[in-house]
């Protein structure tokens, strides 16, 4: 059984994850900063407190399953995986490189632990829902966790999956919406409004919990409520900030799909309590 991190430890881990994200993006020279940083805290809570996983044995039959339906946030996905022991941290330095194994978007064949390849938005939630149904057919006690973007909810397939999960009363699935209100072209409400999200999910017969997606107390409480909710699926609407933790990235949609350059990375690392050199060395040696 892995040790569950407490709130202070989760905060410290999330800081390390953010350092990983900035560092790997800087060396990659491309990739998605904004959503990775906005979903860091929830992801950290999942990987280091909530989920029953065995990173050294990714196919562990009793495992909970996790699906980032927003496949483009590979910086946070790979950081969480490396930090929890699925693979060595030095692999992060070859993110998006030909001689590395960490693809720009998740690839099942290259990375044990990735349940399913993804990156075309709107598909991962359906896969998660299918895994939840299969688990229930087997009377398996696992829980299934899906992470969606708010812009991603513009995909029609999302609502097919939302309808399906409620129809089959799948209470073993918990979905987190990284509600940072930004997408690549601008503000979600300007591009294609999704408001009111809570009412939408409620009308689809889901249990809806709205939280501050950067507050670990609220995250853990929401996950607990989701577990105790029977007969319907739960969605956690996590109010988050695009680029959270790096001042010049916060709340700017322009950081959706861009990495920091070296100078920006130095500033970001300083804000995160390290230097690019120090954190690079840390990753190289772990």
């Amino acid at each position: 059984m892995r040790k569950k991190l407490n709130i202070d430890e989760l905060k410290a881990k999330a800081l390390e994850v953010r350092r990983d994200i900035i560092t790997m993006l800087t060396y990659a020279g491309s990739g998605h900063s904004g959503g990775s940083l906005s979903s860091t805290d929830y992801g950290t809570a999942l990987f280091f407190n909530e989920m029953n996983i065995d990173p050294k044995n990714p196919e562990y039959s009793e495992r909970d399953m996790w699906f980032f339906s927003i496949g483009h946030v590979t910086p946070v996905i790979y950081s969480l995986m490396a930090e929890s022991g699925y693979f060595e941290k030095n692999a992060l330095l070859k993110f998006r490189k030909l001689d590395g194994f960490l693809e720009g978007h998740p690839c099942k064949a290259h990375v044990p632990g990735i349940e399913c390849s993804g990156g075309s938005l709107g598909q991962g939630l359906s896969v998660a829902v299918g895994a939840a149904l299969g688990s229930r057919m087997d009377k398996h006690s696992r829980r299934v966790y899906a992470i969606c973007g708010d812009g991603e909810l513009q995909e029609g397939q999302i609502w097919e999956a939302v309808m399906f999960a409620a129809h089959y009363k799948l209470d073993n699935i918990c979905v987190f919406v990284d509600y940072n209100r930004k997408q690549i072209d601008g503000d979600v409400e300007d591009i294609m409004g999704i408001h009111p999200l809570d009412e939408k999910f409620r009308s689809f017969n889901w249990n809806v919990i709205t939280i501050d997606g950067h507050n670990f107390e609220e995250i853990l409480a929401a996950l607990e409520e989701a577990k105790n909710t029977k007969g319907k699926p739960t969605v956690i609407l996590g109010n988050t900030i695009m680029g959270k933790g790096v001042s010049f990235m916060e709340d700017l949609h322009t950081w959706h799909g861009n990495p920091p350059n070296k100078e920006q990375a130095e500033i970001a690392c300083k804000e995160l309590g390290t230097t690019l050199e120090e954190w690079t060395t840390h990753l190289e040696n772990n």
Partner: peptide
């Protein structure tokens, strides 16, 4: 009947639900 899944008119969802089922060891 317990191994039959009606998805409704939603082919895209069906494809991915089948994928999810396969991850739990089913042969969809």
């Amino acid at each position: 009947p317990e191994r039959f899944v009606q998805v409704g008119i939603a082919e895209q969802n069906m494809m991915c639900v089948a994928a999810g089922l396969s991850l739990t060891g089913k042969v969809p």
